[in-house]
């Protein structure tokens, strides 16, 4: 067999240097395929689209009077929506907070509406509403009407979720 009769295949198959090249290329291509094939399975374990759609929740503010609070669900967690009275707003603005000082103005978008995640920052229990804030029955942490931790084992203030006012009476959380 003369050289001009040898096709691409012959060269790849018989030449020792090109043999190793062939093996390497095939190995790399096969390996890339295995990695690519594993991606759908790994991805399938991520939250599915219906779960992700619960990443935002809508909450209506209709019917909440000053001094009243409502609990809604967001990403499986409770969110407290508190409509504060003028007294409460005044007291909270005047106070710097407790163990985790933070200005009240930094914790609200409109002063009469407080929106906080209703999970105690200690170990995740849901605090109960009290006259001047919230009280966590699990280990006794106390929060004020701005959701700031006053005393107890909780290290930080109640978490602020991302939210937007889409109208006078509706917020979208998340």
């Amino acid at each position: 067999m003369t050289d001009d009769n040898k096709g691409l295949e012959d060269n790849l198959v018989d030449d020792p240097e090109r043999r190793d090249f062939l093996n390497t290329v095939t190995g790399v291509v096969a390996g890339a395929g295995v990695v690519a094939a594993s991606w759908p399975f790994i991805s399938s374990m991520n939250p599915s689209s219906d779960v992700l759609s619960k990443a935002t929740s809508e909450a209506s503010l209709v019917g909440i009077n000053p001094g009243e609070s409502k609990t809604v669900e967001w990403q499986g967690k409770p969110v407290f929506i508190l409509r504060r009275t003028d007294d409460q707003i005044r007291n909270m603005s005047a106070s710097p907070g407790g163990k985790d000082p933070q200005a009240d103005a930094d914790r609200v978008k409109k002063p009469d509406w407080l929106v906080v995640v209703g999970l105690c920052t200690h170990l995740g229990c849901v605090p109960s509403r009290s006259s001047d804030g919230w009280f966590c029955p699990c280990h006794g942490s106390k929060y004020d009407n701005s959701g700031r931790v006053l005393h107890g084992p909780a290290p930080s203030n109640l978490m602020l979720p991302p939210y937007e006012f889409v109208s006078e009476n509706k917020i979208v959380i998340g």
């Binding site: 759908p40 399975f41 399938s44 599915s48 689209s49 219906d50």
Partner: peptide, 27 residues
């Protein structure tokens, strides 16, 4: 991981896999 072996849920869980689960339709 996504299928529900309950007569009232099974059919819907398969549609859930086909529509909502990432690459569920492929699997």
């Amino acid at each position: 991981m996504h299928y529900k072996a309950d007569a009232s849920l099974a059919f819907d869980s398969v549609e859930h896999i086909m529509r909502d689960v990432n690459y569920g339709w492929l699997i």
